[in-house]
Amino acid sequence: MTFKLIINGKTLKGETTTEAVDAATAEKVLKQYANDNGIDGEWTYDDATKTFTVTE
């Protein structure tokens, strides 16, 4: 399955996707991606669209 991350950061905005077997696995990968890029904020997840959003 494809999961999307929408980034609403102070210095970085955009989106990325990852392939994962489930939402929990995708969340780990996407949170690591955000952490690697210095993004720390509030996370939400929409199961209907398989989209995570992080807002700083």
Rank of each mutant, 00 (worst) to 15 (best):
Ala24Val: 11
Val29Gly: 04
Thr2Gly: 05
Leu30Ser: 01
Gln32Arg: 12
Glu56Leu: 12
Thr53Trp: 07
Thr17Val: 08
Phe3Arg: 01
Lys28Asp: 06
Gly38Glu: 06
Asp36Ser: 10
Thr11Trp: 13
Asp22Ser: 06
Phe3Val: 03
Ala23Thr: 08
Asn35Tyr: 15
Tyr33Asp: 02
Ala24Thr: 09
Phe3Gln: 01
Thr2Cys: 11
Glu56Gln: 10
Ile39Glu: 02
Asp40Leu: 14
Thr11Arg: 10
Glu42His: 12
Ala26Thr: 00
Lys10Phe: 13
Ala34Cys: 13
Thr51Ile: 07
Val54Met: 05
Thr2Lys: 12
Ala20Tyr: 02
Val21Gly: 10
Ile6Tyr: 06
Gly9Asp: 04
Val54Pro: 00
Ala24Tyr: 09
Glu42Pro: 05
Tyr33Pro: 00
Trp43Thr: 01
Lys31Glu: 03
Gly14Phe: 14
Val21Phe: 14
Ala24Cys: 13
Gly38Tyr: 06
Ala34Glu: 00
Thr49Trp: 04
Glu27Ala: 10
Tyr33Leu: 06
Phe52Gly: 00
Leu30Thr: 01
Gln32Lys: 13
Glu56Gly: 05
Val21Leu: 13
Gln32Asp: 09
Ala20Asp: 03
Ile6Trp: 04
Thr2Gln: 11
Ala48Leu: 12
Asn37Val: 14
Ala34Leu: 06
Thr11Ile: 12
Glu56Lys: 04
Thr25Pro: 01
Thr51Leu: 04
Thr2Leu: 14
Ala26Pro: 00
Gln32Met: 10
Phe52Ile: 01
Thr49Gln: 07
Thr16Met: 15
Ala48Glu: 13
Lys4Leu: 09
Lys50Asp: 03
Trp43Ala: 00
Ile6Gln: 05
Thr2Val: 13
Asn37Trp: 14
Glu56His: 06
Thr44Leu: 07
Glu56Cys: 08
Tyr33Gly: 02
Gly38Ile: 03
Lys50Glu: 03
Thr18Ser: 04
Lys10Val: 13
Gly41Tyr: 02
Glu27Pro: 00
Lys50Phe: 10
Tyr33Lys: 03
Thr55Lys: 06
Asp46Leu: 04
Ala24Gln: 12
Glu15His: 11
Ala20Asn: 04
Thr51Ala: 05
Gln32Ala: 13
Lys4Phe: 14
Glu19Lys: 13
Thr2Met: 13
Gln32Val: 07
Phe3Leu: 01
Asn37Cys: 13
Gly41Pro: 01
Lys50Met: 09
Asp40His: 14
Ile39Gly: 02
Gly41Leu: 02
Thr16Cys: 12
Asn37Glu: 08
Gly9Ala: 09
Ala48Val: 12
Ala48Arg: 10
Val54Phe: 03
Thr11Ser: 13
Asp47Leu: 06
Ala34Val: 06
Leu12Phe: 15
Asp46Trp: 04
Thr16Gln: 09
Ala24His: 09
Thr53Arg: 06
Thr17Leu: 08
Met1Cys: 11
Asp36Phe: 07
Val54Tyr: 02
Phe52Gln: 00
Thr18Asn: 02
Gly38Pro: 01
Lys28Pro: 04
Asp22Met: 03
Ile6Leu: 08
Gly41Glu: 01
Asn8Ala: 09
Glu42Arg: 07
Lys28Trp: 08
Ala48Asp: 12
Gly41Trp: 07
Ala20His: 03
Glu19Gly: 05
Asp22Gly: 04
Leu5Met: 05
Ile7Asp: 01
Thr17Cys: 11
Ala24Phe: 10
Val54Asn: 01
Met1Val: 14
Asp47Thr: 07
Thr51Phe: 02
Ala26Leu: 02
Thr44Arg: 08
Asp46Arg: 03
Asp36Trp: 09
Gly14Val: 15
Glu56Trp: 10
Asp46Gly: 02
Lys50Arg: 15
Glu27Arg: 09
Leu30Pro: 00
Thr18Phe: 11
Ala23Lys: 14
Ile7Met: 10
Asn37Tyr: 14
Thr25Phe: 09
Asn35Val: 15
Asp47Arg: 07
Thr25Ile: 08
Asn35Glu: 14
Thr16Pro: 03
Lys4Cys: 07
Asn35Gly: 08
Gly14Leu: 15
Ile7Glu: 01
Trp43Phe: 05
Glu19Ala: 07
Phe3Glu: 02
Trp43Gly: 00
Ala34Thr: 06
Leu30Met: 05
Ala48Pro: 06
Asn35Met: 15
Ala26Tyr: 00
Glu15Phe: 14
Gly9Trp: 07
Thr16Ile: 15
Asn35Ala: 15
Asp46Ser: 05
Leu30Val: 03
Ala23Trp: 13
Lys50Val: 03
Thr18Glu: 03
Thr18Lys: 04
Gly38His: 10
Thr2Asp: 07
Asp47Ser: 12
Gln32Gly: 07
Trp43Glu: 00
Leu30Gln: 00
Lys10Asp: 08
Thr25Met: 12
Glu27His: 10
Lys13Val: 10
Asn8Trp: 11
Gln32Trp: 05
Thr49Asp: 04
Phe3Ala: 02
Asn8Met: 14
Asp22Phe: 03
Val29Ile: 15
Thr55His: 06
Val29Ala: 10
Thr49Met: 06
Ala24Asp: 10
Asp47Gln: 10
Gly9Asn: 06
Lys4His: 12
Phe52Ser: 00
Gly9Ile: 13
Ile39Tyr: 05
Thr44Pro: 00
Val21Thr: 13
Asp46Glu: 08
Thr17Phe: 14
Gly38Asn: 11
Thr44Asp: 09
Lys4Tyr: 14
Ala23Pro: 09
Thr53Ala: 05
Lys4Val: 12
Lys10Ser: 10
Ile7His: 04
Ile6Ala: 04
Asp22Pro: 01
Thr2Phe: 11
Glu27Cys: 12
Ala24Trp: 12
Asn37Lys: 13
Leu12Thr: 12
Lys31His: 08
Gly14Cys: 14
Lys4Arg: 14
Ala20Pro: 02
Thr53Val: 08
Ile39Pro: 01
Asp22Gln: 03
Thr44Gly: 05
Glu27Phe: 15
Thr18Gly: 02
Ala26His: 00
Ala48Ser: 10
Tyr45Cys: 01
Ala20Thr: 05
Glu27Lys: 09
Ala20Glu: 05
Glu42Ala: 09
Thr17His: 09
Glu27Asp: 04
Lys50Gly: 05
Thr55Arg: 06
Lys28Thr: 10
Gln32Cys: 06
Thr53Met: 08
Met1Asn: 12
Glu19Ile: 15
